[in-house]
Design a protein around this nucleic acid. Structure first.
Lengths: 233, 233
DNA sequence: CGTGACTTTGAGCCATTTCAACACGCGTGG
DNA sequence: CCACGCGTGTTGAAATGGCTCAAAGTCACG
């Protein structure tokens, strides 16, 4: 019995395209790994040596300028795929935000396996297309939205993406009304292209205006989703 | 003899994965179309009914907010692929910036054809991964760069991407030192997340500082590439 | 409890936007 | 052939949103 058989993301990750025989072969070239919060799996500009599936946890994808400014260019959740198959270099760093478990493959092994399994490549293509759509939508936020709109949009996005497949406490349409942010204020700023101070001020303003509540530093309660959506522009 | 046999992007577009028999089949489900500058091929939010290959010309991909702010989320050139295969809706509008020729397919037909031709899907995956990398790099610009850095980065990007496979007048490393922008000032602003006035001021500043020259509204000459690269941050 | 990292709050400043006027180029028609 | 008008781009002055710098507050952890 391979590790895949008990994998919690087995039916959602790209692996779901494989039958048990193929899964066994994939399992043979991969290995599990856990990451502590803040630990990186790959670095920007590095040779693309690894790819992986996220089993558990939240990770950020980030790039930066030489003088230290950082931009988070993506956030990945369980069942998401990370790394750059069929390419020579990694365009962004990958760092765990929470404790995380991933299923890692040497890129070369994965590439070879994928080329022999069109159904796997098809899943990967679907995922990549969806991620590209999502990324492009985020560009509208970065380029054209005000700080208030950015923060409101961010909170709504989080309330949709932090839903665990098996978790309680979300509204009928699958959106959380209360959640714990996997980001520090600085990281929120790095997602939104703002400074930490501006993010903090917007949080307190949204709270003061009754749209959200902030029981603790990382906890967020969406009190008035409609108003927050209006604020998001 | 099918239209594909004389296609100028035949060897660079995703079609290059097909043999002549397959190409004939693909040709049977596609048709050519020309677009005037400003003409749209698809609209944001619309059902995904078409996909296409760009044969000639430059097109923009753009999204906007309800209140009319616009963000250009991508620019496509000859041999690039457009549209959203395997998905129900189009996330962004596609509009010709120059006169353009495209090779259009009904999405359903294309999807079916692609699923039967793994080599084609593989090419599409490679392209999509590369586009995602590029898009993520652009997020750093949108989120973290100043107006001066944005404009300088933009000009350098243009000097690399406007190179025609068969054109003269580029430096040894395949970068143009003189080119004609396919964008109006407003469109440059929409790519960079700035206002038209800020773009104009940065253009004149870069010219005043001797990094570029502007022989006419659309023409750009890169005089000091090194200084421009430093300016790009 | 004390220490250090993270967050909030405040005050002033500056880059970019906003609003407004003007310039340029180009096609049209008198 | 020139005057006119219109779309596009430039320039200026003022307003402002978000940033910078600085200080105080909060929380987790020893």
């Amino acid at each position: 019995m391979s590790a895949c058989d008990t994998c919690v993301v087995r039916n959602r990750a790209i692996c779901s395209s494989l039958d048990s025989e193929e899964l066994k072969a994939l399992n043979a070239i991969g290995r599990r790994r856990t990451l502590e919060p803040g630990e990186s799996l790959m670095w920007e500009g590095e040779d693309s040596v690894l790819v992986a599936n996220v089993i558990e946890g939240v990770l950020k994808l980030s790039t930066g300028t030489e003088d230290g400014r950082e931009q988070i260019v993506g956030v990945v959740y369980p069942s998401d795929f990370i790394g750059r198959p069929f390419g020579s270099t990694t365009g962004h760093g990958v760092t765990a935000l929470t404790e995380a478990r991933v299923c890692v493959f040497a890129r070369k092994d994965f590439d070879a396996f994928a080329r022999e399994h069109p159904a796997l490549e098809h899943k990967l293509l679907q995922r990549t297309l969806a991620e590209l759509d999502r990324t492009r939508r985020w560009m509208l936020l970065l380029g054209r939205k005000s700080a208030g709109e950015k923060v409101a949009s961010f909170l709504l996005d989080m309330s949709e993406r932090l839903v665990q497949p098996d978790c309680m406490g979300f509204t009928s349409d699958g959106k959380l009304s209360r959640f714990s942010l996997p980001f520090s204020r600085q990281q929120v700023a790095d997602v939104l292209g703002l400074t930490i101070e501006t993010v903090s001020r917007q949080f307190t303003r949204l709270k003061a205006e009754g749209m959200i509540d902030l029981p603790s530093r990382r906890e967020v309660v969406i009190v008035d989703r409609e108003a927050l959506a209006a604020e998001a522009g």
